[in-house]
Design a binder for these strands. Structure first.
Lengths: 241, 241
DNA sequence: ACAACCCGAACTGCATGCAATTCGGGCGAT
DNA sequence: ATCGCCCGAATTGCATGCAGTTCGGGTTGT
């Protein structure tokens, strides 16, 4: 396949808006902002030295990405995906990332391999640091892979869905053990270099599936969901009496 | 699988913004707005009876979906995807829609089957109408399928990528023959009802693949691309002399 | 005839202001 | 003490205004 051209035609309109988006995205995936955290336009604007108009626009973008929930006349909050949505996000992510490695298998350049290896090394070093950084690096490994396809659309979708998955991890899995994930990342790189398409697609599938099932063990109604949902069965019982 | 709850947690913030988005989306996929068409904030605001602020916000959302291109200090224009981006979009679409039918196979309810059949009948009747309507209906069939998964995330991604594909069709394939697509839609419904997962995934794959290859026959540098790209060989020749 | 230049109109980038709505705490009734 | 109500503060929804940039056509020089 002919080399593709880099067209950095990202949506991310003006600079100020995209700066806020990036900052919030990072804060969210590092769990500095937990699901449900309030995001008033005023505070955001003040914090970033811009007017509400800009903060508002940024919130709109993040809402389009599913990281923020916007309800009319209500303060924006960090999204709180349901368990089912989390599972759906992982299902989509698996398909998208299988596509990534399918396109990449056997086509990585030397510098790309070096970059990936360096990234995983960084993940390794971060194992002693905070969980937040480990999670971010693990996510960024997948986004880095997507970038190497040179397909802006694929990058966008993989990034988005990876961020969403990150968000759900912070909701449904407290004791995060990213230990084995690092080895899985190394295995994926090796298979990519070797060019074994089926192997690497299988590796990616099982890698993401294991991350998902490790985190999303059960519908766990006690965590994250609305009070209404938690109380639904009790309400039913009440009407039954 | 237990029935999922409908949570219409769509991003689409306020009403006015989403109204404009819907209108523009429709105009774009019906080719009333061709790729490259200018979308000044003022005109949009005036046309929809809102201020520039709102029109601007809507453009931001559409840019996030990839239907509009936003460049700093420049008038927004309807997106003009490159041939490669079009191909990438179709590749992603294939995977996503395979996921849709995988989840749906053998699980359709009677009213759902009726709704799908009715939709294809509508496509049939529209064969005598304008191309624009045919294209829109064909796209909406796929989005209707996605809706039936009750997965908001999947709906969003399938819709987005389907719109993008629609956009590229208007760019790279003038003589649109959606004739056979209708029969393929019927075949997909039949396989879904029968519950043959592999069969329906295969059908969807070949359906989308044929739509893509029928449209994107070749990189076709003459259509849609930048003037710079078209003139590149001539420039080379000039420097050669 | 042609190209470069220049200037006004058009347009975007952003902040601010005002009306409408929601949020949250205190007060009174039970 | 608890529940419901009410009112002020906080917040959003949106339009408008101003400054900076781009766009396009006319003019001028060659």
């Amino acid at each position: 396949m002919a080399a593709r051209t880099y067209t950095s035609k990202t949506a991310e309109s003006s600079d100020k808006v995209s700066v806020i988006c990036r900052a919030l995205r990072r804060a969210i995936i590092e769990q500095a902002l937990e699901p449900g955290a309030k995001l008033p336009e005023d505070s955001l604007g003040e914090r970033f030295g811009v007017s509400r108009t800009i903060a508002r626009h940024a919130l709109g973008q993040l809402a389009a990405e599913g990281l923020v929930e916007l309800r009319r006349n209500r303060i924006a909050v960090v999204a709180t995906p349901s368990w089912q949505e989390a599972r759906d996000a992982f299902d989509i992510r698996i398909e998208l990332e299988r596509l990534v490695v399918r396109q990449l298998a056997g086509k990585l350049t030397k510098p790309q391999i070096a970059e990936l290896t360096a990234h995983v090394d960084a993940e390794d070093r971060a194992r002693n640091g905070t969980d937040a950084v480990s999670i971010r690096l693990a996510t960024e490994f997948h986004i880095l892979l997507a970038h190497m396809t040179n397909s802006p659309i694929l990058v966008r979708y993989v990034s988005e869905v990876a961020y969403r998955c990150c968000l759900t991890l912070s909701l449904y899995s407290r004791p995060h053990s990213s230990e084995c994930a690092i080895n899985e990342h190394r295995a994926i790189i090796a298979a990519l270099v070797k060019g074994d398409v089926d192997k690497v697609m299988g590796l990616m599938h099982s890698h993401l599936d294991s991350v998902a099932t490790r985190a999303l063990v059960a519908p766990s109604p006690q965590r994250g969901r609305d009070l209404l949902d938690i109380l639904a069965p009790y309400a039913d019982a009440a009407t039954g009496v």
